[in-house]
Design a binder for these strands. Structure first.
Lengths: 341, 341
DNA sequence: ACGGGCACCGAAACCGCTTTCATCCGCGCT
DNA sequence: AGCGCGGATGAAAGCGGTTTCGGTGCCCGT
C-alpha cells in the first residue's frame, strides 16, 4: 500500500488537515510545523495522489488537443508547441485524432469530460461546429486553433489567412507573373477560402495591368490531390506561369505533376505553398511557402486555455501573422520560353 | 451541480450500490431493476464521474506515450498508431516530449504516476535506462518501443534493425556496388548500432569479391547532420558509390550534400535511408528506404500494455520486420562515370 | 484581571463512486 | 411445516485527499 497523507500526519503528529495545508502551501501554518511535516513527507517518501485531489478540487491538470491527424506534420508541429507550453504550466496533454468524423469527435469530448479533463484545444472545428457551440454555452473551457467558429464564446488562436494569401499574390506579381492559378482545398474549409480571398483581393488591387487568375478546387488536401490538380493545371491553355496552393502538401503534389510533364520549377512554373512544414524543406527545389508559426500557435493556445482555467476571465483572440519564406520554387517570369531543352 | 449516482438512486428507488452495479454491468441485478435504473439514468442524463471511479478502482484508462519529439515524423506516425489503438480499447493517450533529457523524463514519469496514468509506452529509453529498470522493478506496466532495455522486465515492440541493415546491404550489393558507406547516428543509440551490425554482417557474408565499406558517425540525427556527413563522404577518395544512412533524415541530408557537389543521385551515388516516413516520399528522387511499420508498432505497443493492464500476465516481446522499399535513389553501379554532363 | 482578536490547528464532512458484508426474500426439499 | 440456500439488494465503509468550522492558546489593550 502506498503511503498516504494519513501516514504522514501520524508520523508528524499533526492532523490530515495540516499536512494538506503544507502540501498546498497554505500560509496558515507555523514554520516549525511546516518543517516537521516536510520531514515526515521526505522520510516516508510520500507522493500525493492527484486523483484523490482532483475529486475534491475538480482539476486534473490535464488538457486535451483534438486534431484531425497527429501524423500530419502541421498538427504534429502544433502539438509540439501545445505540449511544451502545457508542461511548462504544469499540465499534461492528451491527444485525440478525430479525423473528419463529427460523431467520433463528440464521443471523445464526452469521455474526456467524464475523465475530468480541464479544458480542450480544438484544431479541428468546422465553421459552425455544433459541438463547440454547445460546449461554449456550457462554458466549458475551450480554445480554437487555426479554425474559427465565429458564433462561439471561446478563446481562439488564428492565423491571418487572408494576409497570407495576399503575400503569395504579391510575391508572384512582383516576380512578373500575370497568368496565375490557385489550388484550394475542397469544401467548406474556412482557412482555405480565406487564403483564396486574400489572394484574389491582392490581385484585384493590382489588376490594372491585366492579371488573369484561375481557381481550382482540389479533391482533397494531400499530395495525391495536389498531383491531380497539378495535372489539370498543366493541361490548360494558356497555361498559368505561377500557382499558389492552399497548403504545402498540395504544392508538393503540383511539383510532382510538373516533373511528370517535364515542366521545370521554377523556370517554367513558380509554385507557392502554405504552412511551412518540414516537408517544404526537403523538396527539390525547396518550396517557397507562406509559413505559419505552428509551434507558437500551439503555445499560445494553451496559454489562453490555462488563463481561463485559472482566472476564468474574458475570452481572448489572438491573430498571428504568417510569413513569406522564399525558397527555390519561385522565380521571375521569363516571357520567352527557352528553346526545347 | 452535476447529477450524481445518488440522484439516480433516488429517482429509481434503489440504493447507490445497485446503480453502481448497473453501471458496471454486474450480473447480480434483476432485469426489471436494471431497466428501472437505466430509465432513471437516461431521464436525468447522468454521466458517471470517472475521476471518482478511478479513485476507487485505481484505473484512469489513461496511458502515456513518451517520445523525444512528437514533431519528428517518425514519432508522429507511431503516435498515430498508439492513439488509434488506445481509443479502440477505451483508453486515452497523453503525450510527452522528453527530448534527450533524462531528468525531464523522470519528472514526467513522476507526475504521470501521481495522476494515476495506468501505464506508459517509452519510445525513448536508453540502453540501460535506470528509470525503466526502476519502474519495471516496481512492476509498473510498461512497454518499450523501438528501443530495448535488455535487463528490464517489460513488454517490448521492436523492429529487427539488424535485418533492416542487411536488406540495405544486399540491395546495394545486388546493384553491383562494391565501395559502400554507412552513416550512423551518434553515440549509444542501440538501434543505429544494430542497423550497422546487420549491414556489416551482410557485407562480410558476400565479401569474397572485394567489398569495401566505410562507417561514418554523424553528429546528430537530423538533416543538418546528414548534410555534414554527406560532405565528408563526398570528399573521400576513392569515393563510395553507395551509402546507407541510419535514418531518413540523415539520408535526406546526404541527398542535399550530393546536390551541392553536383553529384547525381542515383547515377553517381546511390542512397538508402531507414524509417519510411513521409519525408522519403517527397524528396527528388523519392528515397529508397528500409521502412518500419510505424503505425503498427504503435498499435502493438498499446495492445501489449493494455493486455498486462488487464490480465497482468507475462511480458511479451514482439519483433517486427522492416521492409525494403525501392524508390528513386538507388540504381545499378555504372563502372565508367559518363563524361562530364 | 479580563475580554477580544488572531494565528494555528484538529475534527469531521465531503468529493462521487466501488465494494464488502449483512439482510432479506422466495423457493425447493424433506 | 420447517429448513437451508442462493440470488437480489441495501447500509456503510472505504478510496485519499480538501475544506469548512470551530476550538485552543496567546498576546494585546485597558
Amino acid at each position: 500500500m502506498r503511503v498516504t497523507i494519513y501516514d504522514v500526519a501520524r508520523e508528524a503528529n499533526v492532523s490530515l488537515a495540516t499536512v494538506s495545508r503544507v502540501l498546498n502551501n497554505s500560509p496558515h501554518v507555523r514554520e516549525s510545523t511546516r518543517r516537521r511535516v516536510q520531514e515526515a513527507i521526505d522520510k516516508l517518501g510520500f507522493e500525493p495522489n492527484l486523483v484523490a485531489s482532483a475529486l475534491m478540487t475538480k482539476r486534473t491538470r490535464l488538457v486535451a488537443l483534438l486534431v484531425p491527424d497527429i501524423s500530419n506534420p502541421f498538427y504534429a508541429e502544433v502539438a509540439r508547441g501545445v505540449e511544451d507550453a502545457a508542461a511548462e504550466l504544469g499540465y499534461n496533454c492528451v491527444i485525440c485524432n478525430v479525423g473528419g468524423d463529427t460523431a467520433k469527435q463528440a464521443e471523445y469530448v464526452n469521455v474526456l469530460r467524464r475523465k475530468g479533463i480541464d479544458g480542450m484545444i480544438f484544431g479541428t472545428a468546422n465553421y459552425d461546429d455544433k459541438l463547440v457551440l454547445d460546449l461554449s454555452r456550457g462554458s466549458y473551457p475551450l480554445t480554437l486553433m487555426a479554425r474559427d467558429v465565429p458564433a462561439a464564446e471561446v478563446n481562439r488562436v488564428l492565423v491571418d489567412d487572408g494576409a497570407g494569401g495576399a503575400m503569395a499574390a504579391r510575391h508572384l506579381l512582383e516576380l512578373g507573373h500575370r497568368r496565375l492559378a490557385m489550388v484550394t482545398e475542397p469544401g467548406g474549409i474556412h482557412s482555405s477560402q480565406e487564403r483564396a480571398r486574400g489572394f484574389r483581393e491582392a490581385l484585384d488591387e493590382a489588376a490594372r495591368d491585366g492579371v488573369e487568375a484561375v481557381y481550382l478546387e482540389a479533391e482533397g488536401s494531400d499530395i495525391a490531390a495536389g498531383l491531380a490538380a497539378g495535372r489539370r493545371l498543366l493541361d490548360m491553355t494558356p497555361r498559368p506561369t505561377a500557382v499558389f496552393a492552399a497548403n504545402d502538401l498540395l504544392a508538393i503534389g503540383i511539383l510532382q505533376a510538373a516533373r511528370e510533364a517535364d515542366t521545370r520549377v521554377p523556370d517554367d512554373l513558380s509554385v507557392v505553398g502554405f504552412d511551412g512544414t518540414v516537408m517544404a524543406d526537403v523538396t527539390q527545389p525547396p518550396l517557397t511557402t507562406i509559413v505559419q508559426p505552428m509551434r507558437d500557435m500551439g503555445k499560445a493556445a494553451v496559454r489562453l486555455l490555462v488563463e481561463t482555467l485559472q482566472n476564468g476571465g474574458e475570452h481572448q483572440r489572438i491573430v498571428m501573422s504568417p510569413e513569406l519564406r522564399v525558397a527555390g520554387t519561385t522565380a521571375a517570369y521569363r516571357p520567352a520560353r527557352p528553346a526545347a531543352n
